[in-house]
Design a protein around this nucleic acid. Structure first.
Lengths: 255, 255
DNA sequence: CGCTATTTGTACGTATGTATA
DNA sequence: CTATACATACGTACAAATAGC
């Protein structure tokens, strides 16, 4: 009955459809991240498509972090994280690294906008609350690392993550973490040197903390701007030195 | 020599490797969005992997909008847009629609934070500039639609898009547009009713515009908050009515 | 520890729809 | 309209990882 390629009626656009059907399956069963999904074979006969089609659909959903697939174990509902955004922004940042580092600068500007935009709510949140000794400690460790000439990426990440911890908005927190991740992953890929006036960054962290505990929104906004200034000037400096060496496109390994 | 499955040395981890190699290919040739890529057959022999692996890799990159594949034509470098973020957030919003509409509310809060965080730069940008007659016209058309009892999604989207048009930050503009898209796509999917006090939203748009042209940052921030208030109360109302009908999980079409 | 069953990952061949020239 | 190039889908076989015995 069926030819080797299957009936011509049923294979109109299995690709797009399969992705949507698997999404519908998750929605209609009200599954949560981590819940198990049917095996690929089961999905094949349930949806009436070949295994290749199911696999490509699962790959699509997997790259969007809607499903997570573990080799030799099974497939599960994914974490619905910001990882696709991170991948895309990293690639985009490295791609336009030839010229003006535009994407990287825009990522920093977006981080600034988010810190400014959450300022009022964050200050309000800390009004009357206990002092943030945890953030104080992180700033102190930053200072120690700087004194030894070391970096403090770990503490910086923890600071910005913990800063927004009380914010009751998962997406904002995830987005801020994602943008921090983009920044810290891209900078070494491009071989950018760390900022010269790195001690100013430590002071700015402390100023943000002071303003937060003092309940001073305007001082907080100023401290945020000061905090990102070294990063922006480092990017500008890199652009200036890059424009001297235009960096012609290398030969591709694939010919 | 080679078995049907290929030499066991060359096929260690083709999956992960293939997407990275294709990304490297784009990076090393400094390709731009729209530039053509090798055909799948060429990529197969260049990377030494099978067609299936190349196809799955291309699917991954395609869903991240790093490559764009046109049926029967070829593959090209993608637009590097925010579409994966949109897909993920829409799915996430619909998934947790059972209870508190948490994701949808968080998306609105993120939009507020972005409008607040760009307020200062936006006001500064318009200082001394010409009045925004284009935005004025959009508000007027909103008012007309409201008088006829119609919606004004088109004008609303254009307003928020044009508002940030002068911002010299592509990522911020794309993110704001993406979040607007998430909101307008999710609301009908969940069957949420439009806000009651929709005329307040029109007034808030006008107030934002007034504050912008007056150079008053604080008034602009207040107008932004007023603008989103009807949306937030509509979400709260939907949550209240949802909690009455818990909406048990339906049967999945796939068994 | 090894064995086995289950499940995902890779490879290859082939047929077919689709867009371009 | 025909021809060509290309992506899409199916089926099958085998490799690799994981879990449980």
């Amino acid at each position: 009955m069926n030819t080797a390629a299957g009936s011509s009626v049923a294979r109109r656009k299995a690709q797009w459809s399969t992705v949507e059907e698997i999404k519908q399956y998750i929605l209609e069963l009200r599954l949560h991240p981590g819940d198990p999904l049917p095996t690929e074979t089961e999905l094949c006969e349930a949806l009436g498509v070949s295994r290749s089609s199911v696999r490509e659909a699962m790959r699509t959903l997997s790259s969007l972090d809607i499903v997570e697939v573990r080799h030799g174990h099974g497939s599960f509902v994914g974490g619905l994280s910001m990882s696709p955004l991170v991948s895309g922004l990293i690639f985009r940042s490295v791609l336009d690294s030839e010229g003006d580092l535009r994407t990287l600068r825009e990522v920093v500007d977006l981080r600034i906008a988010l810190d400014l935009g959450t300022a009022e709510e964050l200050v309000e949140l800390h009004r009357g609350g206990p002092p943030r000794d945890d953030l104080r400690g992180l700033v102190e460790r930053m200072r120690q690392h700087t004194a030894r000439g070391e970096g403090f990426a770990e503490e910086d990440g923890a600071f910005h993550r913990e800063l927004l911890a009380g914010l009751d908005n998962t997406i904002v927190r995830q987005l801020v973490s994602a943008l921090w991740e983009v920044h810290t992953e891209v900078v070494p890929k491009l071989g950018l040197p760390p900022a010269r006036d790195i001690d100013k960054t430590v002071e700015a962290h402390e100023a943000m903390l002071d303003a937060l505990e003092a309940g001073d929104v305007e001082a907080y906004r100023t401290a945020v701007a000061d905090h990102y200034q070294p990063l922006l000037t480092a990017i500008e400096a890199a652009v200036a030195s890059n424009s001297a060496t235009p960096a012609a496109p290398r030969e591709a390994r694939i010919s």
